[in-house]
């Protein structure tokens, strides 16, 4: 049984049809990526899959339960963490307070403490800066904090929306190493990326979203070889080697 199963999801913004029937599924431990150009509907899709955006129709089944159009807290409580585009760190809260905010749904204080320690082990950089205001961190550090904050709810699935956006290339590699490490720890990952090249290298399975529809899907290795995708997203000429 799929961990997260999405069928024929339709989303409208006023009269604009942002998603025109999207289906995808994630199994436990998967590392799945969703690529697509700006405006293809990637962020709308993640929004609809975490309760931020209301869907018009379709089904969202998580661990067998229906989550369509539930409030965001139902998704977090179910075990889905959404690391939003642009990091969205609480700039005036300290690094540690940001992390505590991420653990808001967890009642057990001991569990929160152990999650905190685990995150500090994973991201020693954040441990060094725990008292610093989130807004004073560099872009890369903020991204680490956003990911760590997502992990604080001890999710089964982690959505990552454009983690490479606006981050120095050197740090992007570092962030992606972290993401792979988190996947290796057993977390299921849904990565939304504009940087298709990178996304198709790290993930196992990929979906291509074009103006609200999934146009291609398959193993990333295969997608990388697909001429149409190479041409449109990987910046290589269709006939090139």
């Amino acid at each position: 049984m799929a961990l997260l199963d999405v069928k024929d999801l339709v989303v409208h913004y006023g009269k604009i049809n942002a998603l025109k029937g999207v289906s995808l599924h994630l199994d436990k431990g998967d590392f799945v990526t969703l690529i697509g150009a700006n405006g293809a509907g990637k962020t709308s899709l993640l929004g609809a899959l975490s309760g931020l955006v209301q869907a018009t129709s379709g089904t969202v089944t998580f661990k067998g339960g229906d989550l369509l159009n539930e409030a965001p807290e139902a998704y977090v409580k179910g075990g889905i963490a959404h690391v939003p585009e642009g990091r969205k760190i609480f700039g005036e809260l300290s690094v540690e307070e940001n992390l505590y905010a991420g653990a808001y749904i967890i009642k057990d204080k001991a569990q929160v403490k152990s999650l905190l320690e685990r995150n500090y082990q994973l991201f020693p950089r954040l441990a060094e800066r725990r008292k610093q205001e989130g807004g004073t961190l560099s872009g890369g550090e903020q991204q680490m904090l956003a990911i760590a904050r997502g992990l604080m709810s001890d999710p089964e699935i982690l959505y990552l929306d454009e983690p490479s956006l606006g981050i120095a290339p050197l740090l992007v590699d570092k962030i992606f190493e972290f993401i792979m490490q988190i996947n290796a720890m057993g977390k299921t990952i849904l990565l939304v990326e504009q940087n298709a090249n990178l996304a198709l290298q790290v993930a196992q399975y990929g979906y291509v979203l074009e103006t609200g529809k999934i146009t291609h899907e398959g193993n990333c290795a295969r997608l990388r070889e697909d001429d149409a995708i190479r041409c449109a997203y990987l910046g290589v000429n269709g006939n090139g080697n």
Partner: peptide, 23 residues
């Protein structure tokens, strides 16, 4: 307190706060 943290987080960015499960 936890509720105080929620108030501050909601004041800063309510959308993101809702992603953390804050009402």
């Amino acid at each position: 307190t936890k509720i105080g943290l929620a108030v501050r987080a909601v004041a800063l960015d309510y959308r993101t706060a809702s992603l953390m499960g804050m009402k």
